[in-house]
Computed example of a mutant assay.
Amino acid sequence: MKKSLTALAALTVTGLACAQSSVTLFGVIDAGVSYQSATSRNAITGITSKQSQWSLANSGYNSSRIGFRGTEDLGGGLAASFWLEAPITNDDGATGIANFNRRSTVSLSGGFGEVRLGRDYTATFWNDTVFDPFGTNGSGTNVISTVSASTGIGNSNYTRASNMVAYFLPPNLGGFYGQVQYSLNENVRTSATDLTAATSSSAGRYVGGRFGYANGPLDIALAAGQNVAVDTTTLTRKVQTVNLGASYDFGPVKLFGEISNVQNKFDTGLANTHDSYKGYLIGATVPVGPGLIRASYSTVRYNEGAAGIFGEDPRVNKLALGYVHNLSKRTALYATIARVSNRNDAAYTGSLTAASTTGYGTTGVGYTGLPKSSTGYDFGIRHAF
């Protein structure tokens, strides 16, 4: 049996070598102790209520995952490649390689660039994560990202989209880079069912693009995208996102920044209305020996057609601070603390979403009120392979 396995391995290696191919197994295991709390206050009675939770969580620094990727040299400057990546919940082991919904793509690349087919990150998500010192992971994740992906907006294609056809510019353009994407919704179109967004043939479609310039210490990119969301209350609903992000590495400190505008547009057949969510982020990372200090401040202002108290739009602010200590190139310890404050009836609570709905009604003694603040702490370890 041992000899058979050895022979099979040898044949496999020989086959890969002849085809000038490579296949790589890769992954990240990230686990940490997390504490989350949210406080609500009744504006009428002054009574406060609090929710809190201790947990052993995953993906506090990098998203836990396991994947396979490979490339075959086709000659003449052409290459074929694949990428299959699955999420894992290593804190309880409940989620493993059951699907590849983090990424599942096949590509053809050459001097013309790359054509990529399958499920992948959207162009508009890239600016939210690349220009966030916390990389949209853990308690430090910027509120631009979390509000954009919230169930209130219902943007199912915020982070990734399926059935995608994408084109990427070649990497030899003097620092310029870019991509365009079109996600097929794969719905059957008939005149009888195209009456609401829930049955519309356009529901689930994503169109987007991102173009930028990266050279030396500077990286700047503009992205725009539109997703047709499923909604039974309107004829159609489109979530349109435009964001601009940049970073500059001065050496002792690297600065980050982003501005974002999300339009949630409704077409009822009688009138067109929209909600908007405008936000910005500023952040920095500072190398300290083998470690890295991370800090960010992000804010989002809601314009949903109804102002909060004192006639001002709801607003959510978040301040995050963290430290990463690299034990090696693949292993790191990390700690993060983040504080969220809500203004004018904003109801952001981080991971404790139940805190925004707790209570017996909208007024009176039984009403716990909307959340005023929330706090998160992460302490963990990340190992990559």
Rank of each mutant, 00 (worst) to 15 (best):
D92Y: 11
G93Y: 06
T95Q: 12
I97W: 15
A98V: 11
F100S: 11
N101K: 13
R102M: 06
R103C: 02
R103W: 11
S104N: 08
S107A: 15
G110E: 11
F112M: 09
F112D: 15
G113C: 09
E114G: 15
R116E: 15
L117A: 13
R119F: 12
R119C: 05
Y121T: 15
T122R: 11
F125Q: 07
W126M: 15
N127K: 00
D132P: 03
P133T: 09
F134G: 02
G138D: 07
G138Y: 02
I144N: 03
S145H: 12
A149G: 09
A149K: 07
T151W: 03
T151D: 13
G154E: 03
N155A: 13
S156Q: 13
Y158F: 15
R160Y: 08
A161H: 00
V165I: 15
P170S: 05
P171W: 08
N172Q: 06
L173H: 06
G175T: 01
N185I: 00
E186Y: 05
T190W: 06
S191A: 04
T193H: 04
D194E: 05
L195W: 06
T196H: 02
A198Q: 10
T199L: 00
A203D: 02
G204P: 00
R205F: 05
R205W: 03
Y206S: 00
V207A: 05
V207P: 04
G208A: 04
G208M: 04
A214R: 05
N215T: 04
N215P: 03
L218H: 08
L218E: 01
D219H: 02
I220V: 14
